[in-house]
Structures are given as structure tokens and as C-alpha cells.
Design a protein around this nucleic acid. Sequence first.
DNA 1: TCTCGTTTTTGAACGTAGTTCATTATGACA
DNA 2: TGTCATAATGAACTACGTTCAAAAACGAGA
Lengths: 198, 198
Amino acid sequence: MVGKVAARREILRKSLIDIAKLRIARDGLSALRARDLATDAGCAVGAIYNVFGDLNDLVLSVNADTFQALGQDVASSLSEAGQTPVQQLIVMSQAYHRFAAQNYYLWRALFDLERPKGEAAPDWYLAEMGQLFTFIHDPLRAAFPQMDAEQRALLTKALFSTVHGIVLLGLDDASAGVQSANIDDMIALILNQIIGPL
Amino acid sequence: MVGKVAARREILRKSLIDIAKLRIARDGLSALRARDLATDAGCAVGAIYNVFGDLNDLVLSVNADTFQALGQDVASSLSEAGQTPVQQLIVMSQAYHRFAAQNYYLWRALFDLERPKGEAAPDWYLAEMGQLFTFIHDPLRAAFPQMDAEQRALLTKALFSTVHGIVLLGLDDASAGVQSANIDDMIALILNQIIGPL
DNA sequence: TCTCGTTTTTGAACGTAGTTCATTATGACA
DNA sequence: TGTCATAATGAACTACGTTCAAAAACGAGA
């Protein structure tokens, strides 16, 4: 019987990702423990390292799933959006906010996972980031057809950073958190001001 | 001779804060080690715990200094600012950016230090945050005298979050970092759009 | 100055992490 | 089925924050 080992490893891999996802979602990234994972998965601690290089690798896989889910949420929010670019941007931003609020620790793990110093982010990470940028970029092209590409790329990053900043500080109760409903108001206020009058 | 002990402890306290500041600035918060601190300070590891409750307490003190320095930088940037509210906001935001860039790890420590779960941020932290908010709030009052207080408070937080977000993602090379010069452009672009036309 | 009780400082030791690796168990193939 | 390569195991290793029994330093009274 060929591939039995590979199959078992694949099952363990998926299982570990799911368990880590649950634990991160419940207790946060910093509460993740190799021994807890092994207990939950019914395997030895060493088994984790047969499948992942280290715990960071495992969290990276969790983050890949999170990015996927986040991207889908944002994309599907578009279907219920109005037609104007600014309406689309607002709805997507509020979907981003909703995802971050409902999956707080998983969302935080996207940014809190520390990378080996000076090492670039993995390709898939940048690709997922680029995907989110695309969602913003398209309405901007509709809103500002005459704007040159470079300027529009800058505006895209600026808008993403803006929304991310509002959601980040809004959900972080240590940084003078804001009422959740107000976060959506802020997003709409800012986006209307930036895009609306142009 | 009374107060000799207290004086020595105070010296150690200051010394430890300075050393921690240097190490965080050089290697980042996550590279801070109790044993390294003790070695640099020429004291025993246990001595740290005579002066601070734990390492988090020490970092909190470092952060207090960082907030102080940041506040002064932002405040003094106003002296070279133009007279219009939007000019003032842009200059302060770019001062915020410059501080974050030049003191990256110290600035990150303000937000990366993890707090005991569910525990509120210390009072001085919120007070310092409030100080930064005030810097924004004043130009906004000049720009929008007719706006009601609540709305202006919301806009204040939104603007701070916006600038923070742009600087944060711009300086984080893992999140598709942006050229430093462009960060200032983004800030000016966004602030002009938000405030200018109102 | 010389005790002696108190307080402070010390650093070895403790508990808890992530990670490794010699050993054991297992699967694939002749 | 026997043999060997491969995988799984978990005790052990290292590194960390933190503690605490013991030693040193202190200061008041003789």
C-alpha cells in the first residue's frame, strides 16, 4: 500500500492547522503551545516538527487560511454593494472590519506573527495582500480613470492602510478603543471625504 | 544615613530603563532578555525584580519615555508649520512618521507590548494617547467650527488611526512596505482630501 | 567601634517554553 | 515473512522569566 505515510502526514497536517486555528481564535497567538497542540492532536510533540519546520511555519499555514477567508468575505461583500466606487469601497471596508471583529485573534495573527529579522515576507503573503489591494484598485480605476497608474497605486495602499488603521485601533481596547458602530461610521466618513468629492 | 537604599534603587531603575531602551532600539522588543539587562547594568538578575514587578513593567517605563519623546517631536513640529489647519495636520503627521522611522523598534514597542488579557491599558498610556489626540483636535476645531463635539471627536480618532495605519504598513516591510518618501506623500494626499475640501 | 536585628541583594534553582535526537515502531518491498 | 529504510516518539536539551533561601549590607544602640 503506497502513500499511507504521506496520507497520514497530510491528515496530521490538516488536523494541526485546524487545532491551532481553534486555539488561536480562542486564546490568541501568544497562548499557542506545542505541547497543547500535540495533546489535542493525539500525537507526540516531535510529530509537529515532522510536518512543520517550527511553530511559526504552522501559524503561517493558519494565516494562509485566514487570508483566504478574509479575501472571500471581502469579495462576497461586493455583491451586496451599490454601484458607485465609493459605495463599493465602503462596503468592502466594513466587511474587513466585520471580519476582523469576528475573528479578532486570527486576524491579529496575520500581523503579529514575527518574522525572522530582516527576512522578507513569504510570497503567498504578499500575493494575498496584493489580492486585497486589487479589490481597492478596481473601484479606484472607475472613480479616477484619468489618474496615472503610479498615483493610483499609491492611493490604493493609502486607502488600505487607512482602513486597516481605523479597524486596528478601533478594536484594540488598549489604544482607546472606539465603539464598533462608530468604526463603520469613521470608515464611511473618511472614504466619502477622500473619494466622494474628487 | 537615610534614603541611601532608595537612592541606589532609583539609580538602578534609571539605569535599567536606559539599557532596555538601547537594547529595544537596537534589536527590538522581542530580543530583550532579563539576563542581558542584568549583565549590562552590572547587577544580579534578581535585582531587576526589586525595582520592577516584571519585565513588562520595565518596558512600560521605556514606553512612557518614548511617548514623551514622541509627543515633544510632534509638538515642536508645529512651530515650523504653516497656519492652516490642514498644513498643521500634515506637518504633525509627518513628524509622527519621522519619529516612527527613526525610532522604529521603540515606537513598535508602544503597540507590541502585550498586556494581561482583558486588562485595561494603564492610565498614563491613555493620557499620552489623549495628548496626541489633542494635537489633532485643535486644528480640527479651527477647520470645522460648526461641527458638533462628538462628530469632531470621531474625526480626531479617525485621522489619528489613518495616519498611524499609513505609517505602520509603510514601515513594515512584511506588509508590502512603501518607499519612505511616498509615506509622506500618502499622508498629505489623504489629509488634503479629507480636510481640504470640507 | 563593635555588635545584632533588619533589610536588601544575590544568583542558583524552578517552572515552562520550543526544539532536538537517540530510540522504538512502522510500513514498503523482495 | 524478513529486512531495511523511514517515521513517530517523548525524554532530554537549551533558553527564558521569575522566585526565594541564603549571604551581604545596613544602621541603631551600646
